[in-house]
Design a protein around this nucleic acid. Structure first.
Length: 743
DNA sequence: GTCATTGTAACA
DNA sequence: GTTACAATGACT
């Protein structure tokens, strides 16, 4: 018998092996095996059992060992792996590594990273000789001499465009030393695992909840693939609906996966789940990235053997090897934490939907602020919508007010940081001893230029993105194409003289607050002041204890935290992130606001949200033109990290590192097809072009540009509607399709 | 001609 | 990822 094996040894190719007689019985598709590669034993996964090799049989070697007596991946997980491989254009190997925990792969080398450093400084003579004889080695040596720390080997190789042979030669020469570090994830003390398990009688359902439970229950009974989007306002008892659905599945003998965005941030949910299921005698596996090797192995085997039938966990729990999967719950489906930010760059929610499809299971997505793409899928009939409009505690929804800052500017004259409405609200809160949060959604970019009177933003004539103001030389630059011009003295649109750069930092807001509330205790939280980690926690606990009246900060404030005494949330400058063509950032900001405010409010009084903007009702279509496509922006993100690229340049880089022009072209065309399929529109491919970024040999590098209609500017209005659970029709027309060709 | 350096392809 | 080998170039 011959099997096809994907080795986990650093390259992506299916290799064939012979199976010796005594291993026949235990080898299956999905089995982990040890195979000889270049005469060394390596771990691999059987993708094809009983196939024909494409090389002569006499060249085949034998499988050395079958590592477990059960397959590491079930057929549906194998199918999922293959889909991810194509859909996310990730190497099969990295997909498998993401799916199978290292503890299970046992014997696989612990994840190693190789670092390089200078062993001793090169003498001047030596350097001259090197430059002449081995120029590549000289480059590496010079580069290393400039570094303060050890450099990752793989990074250096791709940065300098040299091969491993060069480094090997240097090491042999004794100039460079190579150090191997084992990357060990440090498990932090988590306060929830093991700890208190909440038990209690299940609460009674209200009529709305009952209707949703029935709706989901119907899909579960049918046993066919279905996706439900549960749109329930904050505090409407979504969790209870999830619990009932899981209970139904367990009662019928099936298994369920319950995903939460970040386990560490949702300890209550986890303990509530465990309380309910374990009281009923169902072992519940908790799965997240901070587990120790042992715990991980235990959880995995419990699920694979069918001993446990429920798993609660973050992103990667979607790969749990459960038997007879009937239900996948994705709580807070809009959360960006579901996105993996290293390869394979998958989206936990989308993988959940696809896995449910493969398994013929029900997928239940839930959120108070569903993502636009999920809503689009409801509109197109792919998902079924269930709603919960009432809070279980009968508290009212937060009141969202949008302030037109252009009017404020006219009234107050000059630079306005805080509108009068916001100031009044803050003062009232201070007098009542209640707390306020001010959001500043500043991102790490320089400012754009915006007219204080009409809200005009100067755009690049070629690229239709906001130009960036550079104070040093008084110019506007386009980060996309490099177009540059002097900054105008008056507004190009309405000729008002008061066009100025905007960069509303936390400091400026702090000053403004101090002016209107001199006696308030206030604290600022941003990346500048938060260099020390414990300070972050400190401030949060002080805030919770009521020692701070006003908290000013960026998104980091909102991280899944409850502040019961906060009754006012202000978004100081809604436009700031608007000109960054990363719609996710905008959407996220507003979702945070609604959620923080949704939990706020004392007694029966609801919290309030004030959004300050210069463009309260911007034309959605106009702004949609320069919007962004998220699915593949994942790739772009990697590029940005490496090369500090502006966010809107979608340069697919990591696929093109190779130097074979045919291969590169193939990949480029592959991407174009994927993107076109997803967008349903043509995509422009430019290339091959030399890269402007690095002095790497870049004759063959393609740039793929794609723009997709997506609401950017319309968000303030949209979020207000979202909070009221209304969805304007025109918004869905300008959505992108994030969950693209899923079905 | 030899030897070192470097790039490339293959790993069954 | 690692290794074997082929291509290139420097030097005697």
């Amino acid at each position: 018998m011959i099997v096809g094996v994907q080795p986990l040894a650093g390259f992506d190719k299916l290799l064939h092996y012979k199976v010796p007689e005594h291993l026949r019985a235990e080898i299956h598709r999905g089995s982990l095996v040890r195979v000889p590669i270049l005469n060394r034993p390596q771990v691999g996964l059987v993708l094809e059992a009983d196939t024909i090799a494409d090389v002569p049989v006499e060249r085949l070697k034998n499988i050395l060992e079958v590592m477990q007596d059960y397959p590491a991946l079930t057929p549906d997980l194998l199918a999922l792996a293959k889909w991810m491989h194509v859909y996310y254009a990730a190497r099969m190997e990295s997909v498998l590594e993401a799916m199978i925990p290292a503890a299970v792969r046992d014997g696989t080398r612990l994840k190693e990273e190789r670092f390089l450093g200078l062993a001793r400084p090169a003498t001047p003579d030596e350097l001259v000789a090197l430059k002449k004889k081995a120029p590549q080695q000289a480059r590496v040596a010079e580069f290393l001499a400039q570094q303060f720390q050890l450099v990752k080997k793989s990074l250096l190789l791709s940065r300098l465009g040299v091969t491993a042979a060069v480094v090997t030669a240097l090491v042999k020469r004794g100039l460079v030393r190579e150090e191997v570090r084992h990357v060990e994830r440090v498990a932090y003390a988590d306060n929830w695992s093991g700890g208190e398990v909440v038990t209690g009688l299940p609460p009674k359902l209200n009529p709305e909840q009952t209707a949703v439970v029935d709706s989901v229950g119907e899909s579960l009974t049918k046993g066919k693939f279905a996706v439900h989007l549960l749109h329930g306002v904050t505090g409407s008892g979504k969790t209870e609906v999830y619990l009932r659905a899981v209970e139904q599945v367990l009662a019928a003998g099936g298994s369920a996966i319950y995903l939460v965005p970040e386990v560490a941030l949702t300890p209550q949910t986890v303990s509530r789940l465990r309380g309910r299921f374990e009281a009923a005698g169902h072992q519940t596996v908790v799965w997240h990235s901070h587990l120790g090797e042992g715990e991980r192995l235990d959880g995995w085997t419990a699920l694979a053997s069918g001993k446990a039938r429920v798993v609660v966990g973050a992103r990667s729990a979607i790969f749990a090897p459960v038997r007879d999967l009937r239900l996948i719950v994705v709580d807070e489906e809009h959360e960006p934490a579901y996105k993996q930010d290293e390869t394979p760059r998958y989206h936990g929610r989308d993988v959940a939907v696809y896995r449910a499809k493969l398994a013929g299971a029900t997928c239940l997505l839930g959120s108070a602020t569903p993502s636009l793409e999920s809503f689009a899928n409801v509109k197109s009939g792919k998902y079924r919508l269930d709603v919960l409009t009432k809070r279980v505690d009968d508290k009212k929804m937060p009141d969202i007010q949008i302030v037109d800052m252009r009017i404020e500017v006219m009234r107050q004259r000059g630079l306005v940081t805080l509108s009068r409405l916001l100031v009044n609200h803050m003062q009232a809160r201070f007098e009542r001893r209640e707390q306020t949060i001010l959001f500043i959604n500043r991102r790490g970019y320089s400012s754009s230029m915006q007219c204080r009177k009409c809200g005009h933003v100067e755009q690049c004539p070629h690229c239709s993105v906001a130009m960036t103001y550079h104070r040093a030389d008084e110019t506007l630059k386009c980060h996309l194409c490099g177009h540059q011009r002097g900054s105008p003295a008056v507004c190009p649109s309405c000729a008002a003289p008061d066009i100025r750069w905007r960069g509303l930092g936390t400091q400026r807001v702090e000053e403004a607050v101090r002016r209107v509330l001199p006696r308030a205790r206030m604290e600022r939280m941003d990346t500048d002041t938060m260099s020390k980690k414990h300070r972050f926690r400190e401030i949060l606990s002080e805030f919770r204890a009521g020692k701070i009246d006003v908290l000013i900060g960026t998104q980091m404030i909102g991280k899944g935290l409850d502040f019961p005494n906060v009754t006012l949330v202000g978004l100081v400058d809604a436009d700031l992130s608007m000109h960054v063509p990363d719609f996710r950032a905008n959407e996220r900001t507003f979702q945070l606001l609604v959620q923080v405010a949704g939990r706020a409010g004392r007694g029966d009084r609801s919290g309030e949200v004030v959004v300050q903007t210069f463009t309260p009702k911007a034309d959605a279509i106009q702004y949609a033109k320069r919007a962004d496509f998220d699915g593949f922006a994942e790739v772009e993100l990697g590029v940005r990290k490496q090369f500090q690229y502006p966010p809107y340049r979608h340069l697919i880089h990591h696929l093109f590192r190779g130097k074979n022009p045919e291969k590169i072209k193939f990949y480029a065309e592959h991407w174009v097809k994927q993107v076109e399929k997803a967008l349903g529109s043509a995509v422009e491919m430019r290339g091959p072009t030399p890269s402007p970024i690095e002095k790497v040999k870049d004759e063959y590098r393609y740039q793929i540009w794609y723009f997709c209609a997506r609401a950017t500017k319309v968000v303030p209005e949209l979020v207000r509607l979202q909070a009221e659970m209304k969805w304007p029709d025109d918004v869905t027309q300008i959505l992108d399709v994030d969950a693209m060709s899923l079905m």
